[in-house]
Design a protein around this nucleic acid. Structure first.
Lengths: 353, 353
DNA sequence: TTGAAAGCGCTAACAG
DNA sequence: CTGTTAGCGCTTTCAA
């Protein structure tokens, strides 16, 4: 393992000062003669500027951090691919962390990124505003993707505050008092997605429609509540904690406690998976006994039988756009982006029996 | 965005020299009194040592790089989760890259990592030994996971060389002349996995068993060839290039050109997905018309109907072990690891019709 | 247009 | 046990 050539080596070999080499390589001014010589020598020595030196000098790391709950969830895989694609085309490194949906791990990872001087971050947040305050205070440029962190547990009615704030992004009325974090985000148009799905199910005659959600699905539940309209049958709105086991338990519990439901909308693909499994276990036929609409279009949705009707959201685009935002953040103050969803009708919904 | 406290700030505030602070924080010797004071001040100032400074000084970045072909493939998601879990428990950052299975992108990413002075790398390689030579030469500690790079296109019979070398890892005879890369690897026991699957199918009466592979499945094909025994019906061994489209095309082509086959083994889950889709499109019933065994146990395997019989390999463990190897590499020369596979019988195989 | 020099924050000699 | 000092490789004034 031979030592890599440094800028000094290049300077000496080219008979110029290090400053000149630096300038030439970063596109600064230099006489054609010098530039040519430096370039030649650099190529000859296979010189690659050390990011370490540059970063220390500039007191910041290039590239960006990426925090997702779980790479085993295909949707986050798609999202990550989008981020990586954008980063690659910008030649920037991506430091990845998986939080497992745990705010504490998320905090630790934020700390780790801070330590690395990674000052740009794309995150599918698991913690609330309080978890994120340190990152913001430290001057990180963060862009949220897929969802927003819940407002901090401040006043009395956290949940209400969360919902009004989150709904605001989709155009629902919000009380302006609670603007917890001023961070741009790239999210899907959950409101439209859910609304379309609920309407579709309604059109098939379904009355008792359940919602099966998980962490981070606040905006989706809110939209669901809005779409089904008051009064909401609260027993038909259930949550898992994020793990596959808990998702399965939630789905199974739902089906057993409310055998009268005829359709369910899930807030994510892991919950959709759980619903299919639980239904099968309980001998509920899809769509004869129960209709199913799942959030996220993942490749295996088509493999199920019947193939799953889904609310597709562009995971890859979401990641790509988020990466763009975080990279351009220096230039202009980024504005949040809402990406369209699409109801893809396959075979998991039928008329109410 | 206030400036972060540096070691100098801590030293001044504690009335000691910077070296002392450095020592205390890295567990060096110091009087209890001093240690306590430094620690207190550091905490008070919320001091976090800058990885930048440390890395520059030590001329290497902590942490590790991770290169996978595609995060949208659940298996690589599992693998990545394993790597991240190990890295997290070691407090080390992970720089991620997705190669899309393209050697050229892989090279570029290696270059990027070199530039970042990331000197430890876990990779599911797409390029051959030649692609990897620069990384090795540069002194990177690399550990391959899931597969090995094909030997460089040197002599005349590349494929033969590749196979002998690859088979060696599973205990097949190999000619010692071609040891392309001396890099530890963490792989599944493909030979046993494939053999078990083929025997199982044989036991069900299947004679014409096909193999549907993709890039990086060399060891699996070789094992397949060995398991079915000569003469191998070459038309029953087909390959996709890695994309979902190409996998589908390969599967569809196989089913159409050889309607007489009664079972197929796929080298990975993307190919399994393609096989299910293609079979359905051609009105082949699984397992009545065709039996299917897929490599990789992914959550959705169970959702298919019938649920897919799979050769499970421990993706997460694989990642974890690889990360351990790469982290311990300084201590002892790491030895390759072969992880066990397991045939999980579900419903996609039946007796030959 | 160019080079010398001053650090960025940290660790590792080396003295005291 | 502790402080001083010399860089790690790079960018960036500031003069020449």
């Amino acid at each position: 393992m031979e030592r890599r050539a440094t800028i000094k080596d290049v300077a000496e070999a080219a008979g110029v000062g290090v400053a000149t080499v630096s300038r030439v390589l970063s596109g600064g001014s230099a006489s054609p003669r010098t530039r040519e010589r430096v370039l030649a020598v650099a190529a000859q020595l296979d010189y690659r500027p050390s990011a370490l030196g540059r970063n220390l000098r500039q007191r910041r790391t290039g590239g960006m951090g990426l925090l997702v709950p779980d790479l085993t969830d295909t949707f986050y895989g798609q999202l990550a691919e989008g981020v990586l694609a954008c980063a690659r085309s910008a030649g920037e490194p991506v430091v990845l962390g998986s939080t497992g949906g745990d705010p504490e791990q998320e905090s630790e990872l934020i700390g780790m990124l801070l330590e690395q001087s990674v000052d740009r971050l794309i995150a599918v947040p698991s913690g609330d505003a309080e978890t994120w305050a340190p990152a913001i205070r430290a001057g990180m440029t963060v862009v949220f993707a897929d969802r927003l962190p819940a407002p901090a547990a401040a006043e009395e009615d956290v949940r209400a505050a969360a919902l009004t704030d989150l709904l605001a992004l989709d155009g629902l009325p919000a009380t302006p008092q609670t603007r917890p974090l001023d961070v741009p985000a790239v999210v899907a148009d959950d409101r439209a997605g859910i609304r379309t799905a609920v309407r579709y199910l309604r059109g098939l005659g379904h009355k008792r429609i359940a919602f099966l959600g998980g962490p981070g699905h606040d905006r989706r539940v809110a939209a669901f509540r809005e779409a089904v309209g008051a009064p909401v049958d609260e027993e038909l709105v259930v949550f898992g904690t994020g793990s596959r086991d808990s998702a399965y338990a939630a789905a199974s519990g739902l089906f057993q406690s409310r055998p009268d439901l005829s359709a369910v909308v899930t807030g994510g693909n892991v919950l959709g998976e759980a619903a299919v499994l639980a239904a099968r276990e309980l001998d509920l036929r899809v769509p004869r006994d129960v209709s199913l609409v799942m959030y996220d279009d993942v490749p295996w949705a088509e493999l199920c039988s019947p193939p799953l009707t889904v609310i597709a959201q562009p995971g890859r685009d979401m990641g790509y756009r988020a990466a763009e935002l975080v990279l351009r953040a220096g230039t202009r103050k980024p504005r949040s982006v809402v990406l369209p969803t699409e109801l893809i009708i396959r075979g998991s919904c039928g008329p109410r029996r």
